[in-house]
Amino acid sequence: MSIESQIVQFLFTGIALGSIYAMVALGFNIIYNATGILNFAQGEFVMLGGLVMVWLSVTLGLPMPLAFAVTVAAVMAVGALFERLAIYPLKKPPVLILIIITLAGSIIFKGSAMLLWGKKTYSLPHFSSEQPIAVLGATILPQTFWIIGFLAAVVAALALFFNCTMLGKAMRACSFNPTAASLVGINVKRIVLLSFAVSAAIGAIAGIVFTPVVLMEYDRGTMLALKGFCAAVLGGLGNGAGAVVAGLLIGILESFGAGFISSAYKDAIALLVLLLVLVVRPGGLLSRGEASRLKDF
């Protein structure tokens, strides 16, 4: 395999991985913007998306599009329920408590998934053919293009939602100033609920498109959440475009790092980037703002 083909191969692998990180980062940002909470259970939404999809489409034999829709709806419901049961009842909880609650949530989701699905690894058929496509000497799975396509679709849908719908604008208003938003008649509590539902949906989509390539099991969430968080911080917390760019960047860095530097330290790359960003440029790569402007999360 020539070095050029290797580079193309690494690039596509990185973009596919990065798309997933980007979707997780987007999920982080939506909740963060609405509430200032870092949802540690974000990776579990991805895991749930994958496993519910497997259950519906493989075990129950539902047609793919229907199973897809039901899965997204189900995980959305889980996200909303989590908010209603664990976040909503607390009146002005301190941030520390919120962190611990989402941490507890993630462990509970993981534990429940383990009880429901066991510790087995599940696979899902590819959306289209499994026959790799040759590009410049590299071989790329059609599913890779599905993943990239879904990331584009999610980004487009979010852009439309936040810029062109009343609800989306209300959410943005909340992220700028919740008090002011409630003064102009926006129901902030409902926006918080919505943010959990939307970011659960994004997580579910990521899980569904990702599972055919990498299989899925109950404890995949933590690492995905960590990588997604790296992307979110690198892109500047709360910054949607930043999350996508940073997610892709981390995926590509990882893939090249594993290929050319050391596969043993593959997972450390994203984390080192995170620590470095925290030290050098806490506002994220794309932000011109100062660290002090960051929300007190």
Binding site: I3, Q6, F10, R220, S255, D267
Partner: peptide, 20 residues
Amino acid sequence: DETYVPSDTDMTAQLTKIKG
């Protein structure tokens, strides 16, 4: 001599290197 973490989800990078 390549390695992967048990929680790894994608080993194409390592295998591409081996392919080379």
